[in-house]
Design a protein around this nucleic acid. Structure first.
Lengths: 66, 66
DNA sequence: AGTGCTATCCTTAGGAG
DNA sequence: GCTCCTAAGGATAGCAC
């Protein structure tokens, strides 16, 4: 999506990975929250980015950077 | 998205929740897998749907219904 | 690191089989 | 409960701040 379609492989540039991580993480967390609300379910979502803090998402109730 | 925009609240109809869960789960799992590949990160994703088996996703490596 | 823009690609609600 | 279709709304790559 976006202006150009990315190939499904590791982005070689670190800053590119960071930007993509930041943008896509936001999108996925939004969808995760919507799913938990719409379907009334429990979700646990945990991401580890090497240079940053892990992101934990528990359903629509709680969201935290540890 | 789709033909009609859903209100962000619990879907009252069980079959509707099941259909939405099935469709959106697939979308989120796809995005999760893409993020783990593009950014080369570890992800843990766990969903509990009351009438079905929990879905576990560990990065792009493994996907399982328990 | 974050926000805003927007062309472009992606996801999905509803319906049919 | 699945898969395929498709209109329509959503997410995002690249760029500028």
């Amino acid at each position: 999506m976006g202006r150009v379609k990315l190939k499904m492989k590791r982005l070689e540039n670190l800053s590119g990975r960071q930007v993509t991580y930041s943008k896509r993480r936001a999108g996925i967390l939004k969808k995760t929250k919507e799913l938990s609300i719409l379907c009334d379910i429990d979700i646990l979502f945990l991401m580890f980015f090497p240079t940053g803090k892990p992101t934990l998402c528990l359903g629509e109730q709680r969201l935290a950077s540890l």
